[in-house]
Design a binder for these strands. Sequence first.
DNA 1: GTATGTATATTCACTAGTCGGTATACTTGA
DNA 2: TCAAGTATACCGACTAGTGAATATACATAC
Lengths: 196, 196
Amino acid sequence: MSEAPIPTRKRIVDAATKLFYAEGIGRVSVDAVAEKAGLTKRTLYYHFKSKDDLIAAYLDGRDQPNIRQMSGWFEAAEGDVERKVEAIFTNLARVAKNPKWKGCGFLRTAAELASMPGHPAVKAGSRHKKNFETWLTGELSGHGVAEPQTLAREIVLLMDGAFSVMLIHRDPGYVEAAGHAAATLVRARSGRKTGS
Amino acid sequence: MSEAPIPTRKRIVDAATKLFYAEGIGRVSVDAVAEKAGLTKRTLYYHFKSKDDLIAAYLDGRDQPNIRQMSGWFEAAEGDVERKVEAIFTNLARVAKNPKWKGCGFLRTAAELASMPGHPAVKAGSRHKKNFETWLTGELSGHGVAEPQTLAREIVLLMDGAFSVMLIHRDPGYVEAAGHAAATLVRARSGRKTGS
DNA sequence: GTATGTATATTCACTAGTCGGTATACTTGA
DNA sequence: TCAAGTATACCGACTAGTGAATATACATAC
């Protein structure tokens, strides 16, 4: 009763999530995922028709948890919308110090699949980023910011830039710099009605 | 006399550059590079001690050409510094429409090597990004912008964000949005002496 | 000028292992 | 009895890297 038997499929996705995020999709074999999930490769291929499908499932499973984390930081922050936006970056800079942190799984996967634009995993990444942008637009709009759609996109660009640059320099100062830039952009659209 | 025989090492790096950029470092075998260069793998290993070294050489070779392209766009643009900065993004959006365009090779390589932070290729990428940031700082400073160092870093973040997001959405609108955000940040630091 | 020594540059053939994916058979629960 | 799920064992293709031999160029010695 209390021992809910974790479904095989979920065990596989959980194992794939840990390995793919930690090492990158290209450096993790299907055998490794099966072993981590505690079953054989044949069983994995019973539940997923290909590695590509498994990669897409991995990213689809990260969509909502990721957005929940960001929105949690946003809501927990005190102050006006400018402070709330900056809080996302502050928290990001904090967790990025953990050696287990390896950037954004969606962006890294898209980078690995740059030569396969239509790949299902890239599409999953695109959906996630759109979802996040839409959520942020709504928050900005609710706080009376001018041109929330444009601003949300600019903030997304700064955030994804911070993710990417961090993988090169490993310097959280870049995340904080992105947070300040985002705050500057929010300020430029607060109080005023339009910018140009 | 006029027939300068292209050195073997350069032929190898040229072949590696084309393949690594087009497919990603993990999807290109050493055999494939050797074949493209028109020699055997054993010869390649005579000139490079490992694939990792070859990857680093590929990125080192892209440092100056990349910066020259950016500075070329900057210098060719007419108008004030705000327009010149935006011109970089406008040109970027243009070339990004070419199907051969696969984002920033430095960022993509760093993403693939996220689990190996000290990798020589990641260091090469870090050097390049620093070089670009330094160049941009100098240009901004020369145009009398306040806090050129901070602004340069913010623009770099927007640019690298645009590179990364483009690989997910394949929508040049994001590059243009990044250009507008960069222009907004430049404007916030023009005419004034400081921002905070 | 021609024989010999030596460093550079290149090739063929190979190792030992990994890759994604599958054919076949077995177990288990309804 | 039968279908869903799992296991063993295997496939052909590919992987980074290497051993041993060889070709080429250019010295120096005679």
